[in-house]
Design a protein around this nucleic acid. Sequence first.
DNA 1: CAATGAATTAATGTATACACTTTGATGATT
DNA 2: AATCATCAAAGTGTATACATTAATTCATTG
Lengths: 255, 255
Amino acid sequence: MTTKVSAPRGISTQSRLLAEQLRQSLLDGAFAAGSRLNEVHLARTLSVSRTPLRAALQTLAGEGLLHHVPNRGFTVPEQSLSAIIDAFEMRALAEGLSARLAAERGMSEDLRRRLEAALLAGDEALSSETDDGERRTRYAEANEAFHGAIHEAAQSPLIRDVLRMCQRVPQASAHNIVAFDIADMRQRNAAHRRIYEAIICREPREAEQQMRQHVLAVKVSMARWYAQRMNSQPAPEPNPHPALDHRTPVDPAAT
Amino acid sequence: MTTKVSAPRGISTQSRLLAEQLRQSLLDGAFAAGSRLNEVHLARTLSVSRTPLRAALQTLAGEGLLHHVPNRGFTVPEQSLSAIIDAFEMRALAEGLSARLAAERGMSEDLRRRLEAALLAGDEALSSETDDGERRTRYAEANEAFHGAIHEAAQSPLIRDVLRMCQRVPQASAHNIVAFDIADMRQRNAAHRRIYEAIICREPREAEQQMRQHVLAVKVSMARWYAQRMNSQPAPEPNPHPALDHRTPVDPAAT
DNA sequence: CAATGAATTAATGTATACACTTTGATGATT
DNA sequence: AATCATCAAAGTGTATACATTAATTCATTG
């Protein structure tokens, strides 16, 4: 009964915004694995109609972030431990290929600067004397910027999408560094520097090799962390994120 | 008008069937690269309403088989030569990982039989004295069965999806063997046998290595074929498919 | 005549009504 | 009491109308 043109439209469509928003929530683990997404409920919660919501869900299902069963709707897929390991293995190969291509194709001035900035940001995050949480956040950002610049340099939409697919297992995502202690981070940072060198010196094989080892090292950290966590805390609850209980609005400020 | 329940429904939904059908058409190259898909037209052609059609298109866009721009609809992405090469590189790594996991995790009796059957089918296709087209078709089937069995043995949904993503470049698809001559096929078949041996003997590294080389060899064949084709036949027309030629002309001014 | 811009047309995005399927509950029958 | 049939409730799938955005046409003007 509201007027048909209720919300002020931006340049993008509701579907796109919804997809983006939900993707982020899913990667943040806001929805419990295995849980079912109720369309009417979610639509009401987000103040949209079912049509754009469904469009977004279809997209995310295509990306593998959701599972769809014909007359039973969309569910959040549950990831086994082996699935997480596989995701790291795959990501190591894809990131390696990405680094190799970056070394082969060279980096633009702009990208090179971004890469160096990311390295410096990593250094700074490690040397600064803030509290642990803050350090993690800042290192995670630097880490993501570093890898992102390389992905861009590779100039391959396919690899970008493959990497995105690897991150559909949130634990294998590039911005997940929860498993790191400070020593880990230092080692990762050193590895970044070696990768950077290899790319700048245009040594494809070296870049690929270094990058693979780098990602596999992350895998080991993650596996170790998981093992500990499993022992001390038998019920691995999904990340209780801000206001993201699946019956509360995803983001109060989101319009 | 007709009653609402016009078509006899199967166990699946229209959206799913449409997605499947369109995916096949896209992989077969039935739609010209760069062409725009008109929803109303396509819906009429396929005798469905726009809603399930759009659902299918959303899914395919999520898979990367289509491109979507907000108020301009769905288009078939154009693949550059480098994109094709990248797809092979990525596929080589993913298939390699797949083979490695198959070797690590072992094959069930059923899968082993299927693998052997695929090998025999390959042998037979090569030794039989049918015409060339028939031989290709049969070899392509054997090839797909061989790789499919390995993918299944790897038991990794992620890798399966990554491989599917690699095949969104139709030229890099496992069932595309148009570039092969008989000598090529024999070499491929021999490689299959080596891969089989490695997997059965539970030698993960060997399996991975052999598989990578195998796929990269296919890449070389394909590249050679493409080069020839480009010289002799500058206008590579897309495969004219059944009743799906509704194409809206590509804007000639679009560069 | 070229260029610009309003009006027309077509195509996509969204809302909503309705049909179909699933699921859970209720009650009858054994 | 247990089992199964039937039905009600809720949820998903589809059709269609309408809104909005892009593309085209055509007239006006410099």
